[in-house]
């Protein structure tokens, strides 16, 4: 059986909120190392991958591999009943037809309990190759969201160029064109404001802004976002879910290539 207790319901609420417009139904794959989710959007352009390691929960118990087939719209309805600061416990049997969710207020004066019906989802699992990215950018997540939404007002695509001069986001549309350039920046007093750029070779790739703006719904999960690029491979946009390494929400986006 599965029993997983999260100290803050906020994490799961925000994860589901961030991905529910990209993915409708997906399996939460539970095993002794934690809970993972992988799903593509309907048009197979983007891939969402979530990992919540067992050490993100206390306690965490999962004796066998369990796939929880969940409709995210339904899960959203149930999670709406949880306050951000509630303690959230997920429970399921080994071959479950429902997922039990318990929300407890921090001072334990309210306990809510819900059962969510599960579904059988036959989902393809994709192997994501280990990639040494040519460019890695770590920046404030709200700043990345602002760049994407600002550029989407002009165009449906953005070209991201990484060079020794910095990271340049360029778009052009019917009303005109625009660009934003980021340079490495260290704020000694407020590390969250830092922009860190690691570059091993120049990169230039074009992506759909509609998807990038969608990924930015995860900005509430983490102050910083990590963006990884290599020529002719999908872009990786990654948000840390907890302070523990390995628990993250990742989005991969296939590029636009050629004319």
């Amino acid at each position: 059986m599965l029993e997983a207790r999260l100290d803050q319901a906020e994490i799961l609420k925000k994860v589901v909120d961030a991905i529910k417009d990209l993915v409708q139904d997906c399996n939460f794959d539970c095993n002794d190392s934690g809970i993972a989710l992988q799903a593509m959007d309907n048009s197979h352009v983007a891939l969402v991958s979530m990992n919540l390691q067992a050490d993100s929960f206390a306690p965490y118990r999962c004796d066998r591999n369990i796939a929880l087939g969940v409709n995210l719209t339904s899960l959203t309805k149930v999670l709406r009943a949880a306050q951000n600061t509630d303690i959230l416990t997920l429970r399921a049997l080994d071959a479950p037809d429902s997922l039990n969710l318990v929300f407890e207020s921090q001072d334990k004066d309210r306990i809510s309990e819900y059962d969510l019906k599960l579904m059988d989802i036959d989902q393809e699992h994709l192997g994501i190759p280990e990639t040494e990215y040519a460019a890695t950018i770590k920046m404030p997540s709200v700043e990345f969201r602002r760049i994407c939404t600002d550029l989407m007002a002009l165009s449906e695509s953005v070209t991201i160029e990484a060079s020794k001069d910095g990271i340049k986001f360029t778009c052009s549309g019917d009303i005109g064109n625009g660009s934003v350039t980021l340079r490495q920046h260290t704020n000694v007093e407020n590390e969250k404001e830092n922009i860190e750029i690691e570059l091993s070779e120049p990169v230039a790739l074009t992506f759909s802004l509609k998807y990038l703006v969608n990924f930015c719904k995860a900005a509430g999960l983490s102050n910083t976002v990590t963006i990884c690029l290599s020529n002719e491979v999908p872009l990786l946009v990654s948000y840390a879910l907890t302070s523990k390494a390995g628990s993250n929400l990742r989005f991969y986006l296939a590029p636009k290539i050629g004319d």
Partner: peptide, 14 residues
């Protein structure tokens, strides 16, 4: 602005 690629062209089915 280029042709949208599919993620399936990059990641193989496990």
């Amino acid at each position: 602005t280029g042709k949208q690629q599919s993620i399936l062209g990059f990641f193989s089915k496990a």
